[in-house]
Design a binder for these strands. Structure first.
Ligand code: ZN
Ligand code: ZN
Ligand code: ZN
Ligand code: ZN
Lengths: 165, 165
DNA sequence: ACTCATGCTGTTATGTTATAACATATCGCC
DNA sequence: GGCGATATGTTATAACATAACAGCATGAGT
């Protein structure tokens, strides 16, 4: 179901923007982060992040793995899952639960809870910041939130019938 | 990973409550809803809803299937997935993306976007109402929301270290 | 009564996503 | 050179999900 298609899709909101610049920025953020936390920016890890940045859309673990394999960097699932897990733990990659897919963070550097808008038609994913969806209810219930999943599915501006196609 | 354990867990918030009554209420809501929409409340469908209500926690599709199989109501994955899909479509069961699991709705009858708090320690799941996590950002982006996934993972009151165990 | 459409269930087979467990490699350090 | 720590390579399997088709019941129309 997941295959290699769109590459020109935008992430931050659904508007167009400068891929090259945002890829470079993310990679720089990754290097800074690894240096600061004394983590190893290994070839596999670096390449996995690049793959997500190049794709600029959500990719399944096996999609990422296929690209690694093409380049001789690993061909077995754990290789991809480990690298993805590493970046998710560092906050530079987010997992989209609804798609079982992974996407490079659109706001690297800043700490944040991410929220996503997923177009069910074209599959593009936009990351925004969350607005604390639980209000007081979590506090009232005595629940201590650690991580959040916030995903909206619907139609992006380009895919709304009658929109400027 | 999903197995047959806790049965006494609460759903609406993390406090205790009357199972028997809430099960009966849900089942009644299901009957009313099927009648109103002219849908068939078949044995498999009814039993699947009952299984979720009895468990009173999130169950994986294969957990549900196992219970159906014990009772001779179907032993192949599609049987469970179809019935679960039916209830999800009707809004009486919610899918928890983070757990790949299904849970009976805690507020049957009312139309709502559900939000969940998932305890990473004991696995209990509490359903609350959402507080519109996207604020204006979706509108600003021109995104038309159809469905939402809102899930918080963390520690429930009973599992917070130093809580009244 | 017959036939047809519809909707649900049964079943086979397969596809997709994810992890456990263990082996090997690498590097800094003592 | 031995050792712990970290990362990768590999095997095998677990866990989750659906496509596709066959069969059966029900109910409407004729
Ligand atoms: Zn982000
Ligand atoms: Zn779209
Ligand atoms: Zn609900
Ligand atoms: Zn708990």
């Amino acid at each position: 179901m997941n295959s290699t298609k769109a590459t020109g899709a935008s992430l931050t909101g659904f508007g167009a923007h400068d891929h090259t610049r945002c890829r470079a920025a993310s990679l720089a953020a990754a290097e800074a982060l690894c240096a600061a936390r004394k983590l190893q920016l290994t070839p596999v890890r670096k390449r996995v992040l690049e793959i997500l940045l190049e794709a600029h859309e959500a990719l399944g673990a096996y999609d990422v793995l296929a690209r690694l394999a093409e380049e001789g960097l690993g061909s077995k699932p754990p290789v991809a899952y480990r690298a993805l897990g590493f970046w998710v733990a560092q906050g530079l990659v987010h997992r989209i639960e609804k798609l079982n897919a992974y996407v490079a963070c659109a706001h690297p550097g800043r700490a944040h809870d991410a929220a996503f808008m997923i177009c069910r038609d074209c599959g593009r994913v936009a990351e925004t910041e969350s607005h604390g969806p639980f209000g007081q209810s979590a506090g009232e219930a005595g629940f201590q939130i650690e991580t959040m999943v916030i995903e909206a599915e619907g139609l992006c501006p380009k895919c709304i019938p009658g929109a400027g196609l």
